[in-house]
Design a binder for these strands. Structure first.
Lengths: 242, 242
DNA sequence: GTCAGGCTGTTACAATTGGTTACAAAGAGA
DNA sequence: TCTCTTTGTAACCAATTGTAACAGCCTGAC
């Protein structure tokens, strides 16, 4: 991947395992966040974009399998399960639920890292979304974006021409408001390109888009920069299914 | 459509793929049946109501494409194709054959499941009725295209002469509104020619067509360019079977 | 057959788009 | 504060697109 590290969320109720693992992942050049329960993980996922989740099956409260199932259902984040025993039952159940891989405890951190890298690689290869956009029009901050018509019009009804790249970037933001999107993710969402080493194309597209939609591009209100993380779209978005 | 779980028919000559996939789908809350050949599938379809078919292209005997074509012709069941290679798939889908989606092998069952759900959702919203080929007149943005007469008339009833190339291009767009069509696809749809290396004929035909149907050809509204991708027809199209 | 006229692919060139580079500005940490 | 990293953006350039001009081909009239 690139200078924007994949973001891993470690979910485990054992503080030592959780923190040690997170530290190890960070040392290995990944970004890592932690959650001590399924509940906390859900909350975290609402506000941050995560590339992969390492998830302990056995936890008090809502257990890992349950969280895993619902994650898989929404189908956006790959999951690696941590299972207590080497027993096949867990593993089979996990894989059937749709986890991407599993590691048995006690685990070798290096092995887990290798599996994380493998799953990320696989996830990156999943063909791009061919599904049509669901929402027909997306409204935000006085603007209205007609997705099928690829037309952005201001409060006064005047249309502002968008290039294809700007349009795709805007759609990527509008479908995920308030989520922090890394440059890599945005690049994937807009063009599917694999990022170069010093890829600044997203920065430029963001800059160009800001020039068109921000009231004052010098102090952006709609697309905020998350220092070290990426960008977030901050305004409320109303989508109308036609 | 039945009011119970969606019923999926899996058609594949490989027993293991077929059975595993069926099991996975059942576990995911769908009903699944299997057929090991196009022939068996046809027989099955006569006696059972199926909501969606997952169909392997490569099979001994009558192959998947052939079955798919005739299914699409009758126009009642959505189809997702399993293809061996990623090549040419985009041409296959939607265009010549009319499948609703495709997945390349080896496939991730979760991805397939997501696509099944997406297609079912679409099918539930958009009644799959008429065969678009038979539509007699296509109306869009104030224009009316009489297909058998090859006659395009404006809101005021005044006819605009179209060359046959322009006519075919327009029909290609009108039958697939909101889809991004690559130059190669458009070339295939309009003339069937194999594209040259620096083929700009589609660009020219688009330019000529725009001059005739766009209110302001300088800022096209109906046929939009997708930079690096092709063209899209953005307006709503109403087709009347006359 | 010849010719005119229209259609369509090719070529050429201008305009647009978007990725890259460079450098200034801003943020983070010591 | 000083320094290193990250971000903003202007400037540049290569790729892509728009379209005018041209040429070959076909059709129909004579």
């Amino acid at each position: 991947m690139s200078e924007h590290e994949p973001h891993i969320l470690v979910v485990d109720d054992h503080r030592d395992i959780r923190e040690q693992l997170a530290r190890y992942l960070r040392k290995s050049g990944l970004r890592a966040s932690v959650a001590d329960s399924a509940q906390q993980a859900r909350k975290f996922l609402k506000s941050a974009a995560v590339d992969l989740i390492v998830l302990d099956i056995m936890m008090p409260g809502e257990d890992g399998l349950s969280l895993c199932r619902s994650l898989v259902e929404t189908g956006t984040v790959p999951v690696i399960l941590l299972t207590a025993m080497a027993e096949d039952t867990d593993r089979i159940v996990g894989l059937e639920i749709g986890a991407d891989d599993y590691v048995t405890k006690p685990f070798n951190p290096r092995e887990l890292l290798a599996r994380i890298r493998a799953v990320l690689r696989r996830a990156a290869h999943v063909p791009r979304d061919r599904d049509p956009v669901d929402a027909e029009t997306l409204a935000f901050a006085g603007w209205t974006l007609d997705v099928p018509k690829r037309l952005l019009s201001g409060a006064d009804g005047v249309a502002v021409p968008l290039s294809s790249g700007e349009f795709q970037l805007l759609v990527a933001f509008l479908k995920r408001p308030r989520m922090v999107l890394s440059r890599d993710q945005l690049l994937d969402l807009t063009s599917g390109r694999t990022p170069g080493v010093f890829d600044r194309s997203i920065d430029n597209q963001v800059s160009r888009l800001r020039r068109k939609i921000e009231p004052d591009p010098k102090t952006p209100e709609l697309i905020k920069t998350v220092w070290g993380g990426g960008y977030t779209f901050t305004a409320d978005v109303q989508d109308t299914a036609s």
